[in-house]
Amino acid sequence: MKIREEKLNDAVICILEGEININNSPDLRKAFDGLIKRNEKKLVVDFSGVSYIDSSGLATLIEMFQRLKKIGGALRFSNMEQKVKNIFEVTKLHKLFEIFDNREAALKDF
């Protein structure tokens, strides 16, 4: 998995690529830790390059959602492939997270 960050006004876009699994989800958590430390409160996670996410990846996103909520921030997702979207639907997490078709729509929602 590759993680890339872009800053756009007061929001951060976190662009993920590859498979998010038990071996690399701690790296994603570390990247999220960095954002919290820098007091970033608006985060869009761009899934356009993500082919698969496992339970540890989902748990990492849930934790980040909780942390951002605690400090008055917000988390939005964009560009999710259908097969990744299916994982969110099976686990009913699509009801918890805000999922948008593209970055622009996600950014507009803040």
């Binding site: 038990i22 748990a59 990492t60 934790e63």
Partner: peptide
């Protein structure tokens, strides 16, 4: 079998129990 943080493990357990 994993190096996951306790906080993450607890969330996974909640997800599995929900399933």
């Amino acid at each position: 079998h994993t190096q996951l943080a306790e906080e993450i493990i607890k969330i996974i357990i909640k997800m599995k129990l929900s399933l």
